[in-house]
Write a protein that binds this DNA or RNA. Structure first.
Lengths: 269, 269
DNA sequence: TCGAATTTGTGCGTATGTATC
DNA sequence: GGATACATACGCACAAATTCG
């Protein structure tokens, strides 16, 4: 199965351990052979044994606990978060819909504040230069939970010029609280037409991992989402989900202009 | 500036080097001090000096080239890979289009083979149980490069029952070589209508990181893409991109059934 | 073209600190 | 407290890749 004889000793040892995990001999949470143990069993040096374990750790297949040992940590089958479906409905919050679909109980906590948006957000919301230190956006921090366990962080920004004086200035206030951005914006005559999401991944910050009750430095998937009403950006959010628990699902149709777009829909061959 | 006295020597050395990069003293492509050099200058052991460099490498701030040295590699603003746009055209390979749009020179290498698809792929292609050890799929490994640098891996699977006996059995053979799946499938009367992508992130495997010339264990974004012609899956691929270089962009319209879908379009209030 | 010098990578050995059980 | 385990730090030797005269 190996493409070559695998020149390096520590890689061969790593392969061997990986195989014992793959085969099911070593299971989630089991202790891997210790560094001195491996060294003695295989007649190799401790440094080399340690090197082999580091390979598995860097691949995310194991975690080391100082003083205790090195333990198998299998990647979980991730839950699917449906981010786009070509039959998507615009009502209710996407997160709620998803959890409903999977029969999990969704809940969330939030905290809103008006302030002057930072440069990156100004850009995404086309806010232009700040007028002195005037507050021009509402920021809301969300922590979403499924079955009581925190699973998603979101920081949402809405321009104040849009919502000032309307009943929906505060996202989680009034009749439409918890109904999602789309419905709220519709209520003030700004129906959301388009969305753009930019997806990336990075190690989570200490704060993010704490809030998600996650191991420090664990990988998170980040989404920068912006909603548009016509050409006007009406909301943007930075969303963070733990990568080992969630996969994002996008879906669409190819080769045709979708929906009734002003830029005339021709029929693809 | 350091939050603590930083107990460990190799971390202090790493901090020092990182600072020299941050300050601009060391620039993109510059050679960092060599292991023996560092050891001599700072009066530390070679192993510790090497350890310090490994920290920078794992942070993606440097790359080592065996025999040559260790070089600064500054994080770039991530390139945007456009995965979905509601004005998308079905012709040409998506990767090529993207690189064109960004004025980068795209190239790729590939390797095709027919074999019996593994369980996970059978599932995605609706292949059912394997008939003995009969080959029933064509697998193609791709390495895509931009400006000579490998940036994306893809393993594509196509069911043999579809393409056997047609001019497009081998993806990179014949007239339509390099034109992308959509065009090839169209040529045998299977136009691609729908796509589904499942996006996740994890540490790269040793092999993936090698192929991408990336630090071992660096974070990769994974995409599982499946193309459908009607209800029939005609291709599926596992795509891997380094997370520190790319962000995926998805975009769409909200609240309407897109395109002319057979499953009857009702008009949302 | 060849070889010498340099550099990273691997592998070995040892010792010490510190966390966990 | 004692045994065990990982993490750091030191030392050395050699292989393989690269660079340059």
């Amino acid at each position: 199965m190996n493409r070559e004889d695998e020149r390096h000793l520590y890689l061969r040892v790593a392969d061997q351990l990986r195989e014992r995990i793959r085969s099911g001999e070593l299971r989630e949470g089991d202790r891997l052979p210790s560094v001195p143990g491996l060294a003695a069993d295989l007649g190799i040096s401790r440094s080399t044994a340690a090197e082999a374990l580091k390979v598995l750790i860097s691949e995310g297949l194991a975690v080391a606990r100082s003083g205790a040992g090195t333990f198998v940590r299998l990647p979980r089958e991730p839950q699917r978060l449906i981010r786009a479906w070509y039959r998507a409905t615009p009502y209710g919050s996407p997160f709620m819909q998803d959890m409903d679909r999977q029969g999990r109980e969704a809940s969330w906590a939030y905290e809103s504040e008006s302030l002057t948006a930072p440069a990156e957000i100004r850009d995404r919301l086309s806010l232009g230069e700040p007028a002195g230190d005037e507050e021009d956006a509402v920021r809301t921090h969300y922590v979403f939970s499924a079955d009581g366990e925190p699973v998603m962080l979101s920081t949402s920004w809405e321009p104040l010029w849009l919502t000032r004086g309307t009943p929906i200035v505060l996202p989680e206030d009034g009749m439409l609280a918890g109904r999602g951005v789309a419905e709220r914006m519709l209520s003030i005559g700004m129906p959301i037409d388009d969305w753009v999401e930019e997806v990336g991944a990075r190690p989570g910050t200490t704060e993010e991992c704490e809030r998600l009750r996650h191991a420090p430095g664990a990988i998170v998937v980040t989404i920068q989402r912006t909603y548009y009403s016509g050409e006007t950006p009406v909301e943007t959010a930075n969303i963070v989900v733990p990568a080992d628990r969630f996969a994002l699902v996008y879906s669409g149709r190819m080769g045709r202009v979708s929906g009734t777009n002003k830029s005339s829909a021709e029929d693809g061959a």
